[in-house]
Design a protein around this nucleic acid. Sequence first.
DNA 1: AATCAGGAGGTGG
DNA 2: CCACCTCCTGATT
Length: 269
Amino acid sequence: MGSTSPSLSSLPPSRLLLSPNTVFRTGPEKGAAGVLRPERQDWSPSPPATPEQGLSAFYLSYLDMLYPEDSNWAAKGPGVSTEDKPPEEPEQCPVIDSQAAGGSLDLVPGGLALEEHSLEQVQSMVVGEVLKDIETACKLLNITAAAWMKERTSPGTIHFCASTSEESWTDSEVDSSCSGQPIHLWQFLKELLLKPHSYGRFIRWLNKEKGIFKIEDSAQVARLWGIRKNRPAMNYDKLSRSIRQYYKKGIIRKPDISQRLVYQFVHPI
DNA sequence: AATCAGGAGGTGG
DNA sequence: CCACCTCCTGATT
C-alpha cells in the first residue's frame, strides 16, 4: 500500500487551493478553550497551537477524500505496516482555489500540445471530485455547500441541499447540514459510517444490519468530531464518554461480545 | 498504554 | 434544559 495515489500526485498540491479564511471560519476560540492545555495535536505538521489546526486537520481528511480509489484500507489485516500513518502527508495539505474550478489550471508552465487535452480532463475530473467532496466536507463542518458555492461559482450549477442520496438513512435523519440543528454525536458517527470511502480508515461497519461498528482510529474520529463541534481539545477519552452517555439513553450500546472500540447502535436504520 | 465505565460539575445553544 | 464537555477514579484488556 504505501505509495501515494497517482491521481493526486500528478497534480501539484499547490494548485488545489481552497482559501481557508473565506470558506471555513474557524471560530476564534475563546471562553471554554481558554483552558487549553498541551493536548496532543497529532496531525499538525509541527508548530502546534495555531488556530489553523482544525483546518489542517480538515485538509488532511479532505485530501483523503480526494483519493479516488485507495481500496487498501478495507482489507487491513493484522500487523499493518506503519500503523497510525496512513498516506497522509501533513506537508502537502491540499488547498482548493476557486480558480482551480474557474479554469486556470496552469499545470505545465512551458506549454505543450497535449496540455489542452489533459488540462480539460484533469480539470473536469478535479472539479467533479471537488464538488462532490465539498458536500461531504461541508456536512462535517456543519456549513452548507450551497452557501459556499454561492460565493464562488456562477449560479445554477449545483444545489447540494437537494442532496443526491445514495444511502438509506442519509438525508432526513442523518444529514444535519441543512437543518441548522446542532448535530448529535450519534448522527455524526453515522455520517462518517455512510462514507466508508472517505472515513473507512477511521470508522467502519462490522455489521451494518445490526448497527455494529468499529472505531479504527480513535484519535482521528475524535479529531473530526472536535472539528465539527469546534472543540479543539476533543479526544477519544471525551468522545467515548459521550458515547457512554448513550448507553442509558438507549441509543448506542456495547455489542454482546464486547470488544475494544466496537459499539452498536441500538436502533439500526 | 489504551480503553472502558460511570460519577460529578460545568457550559453553550 | 439538554447534550454534551471536561475531569476524574478505578477497573479491564
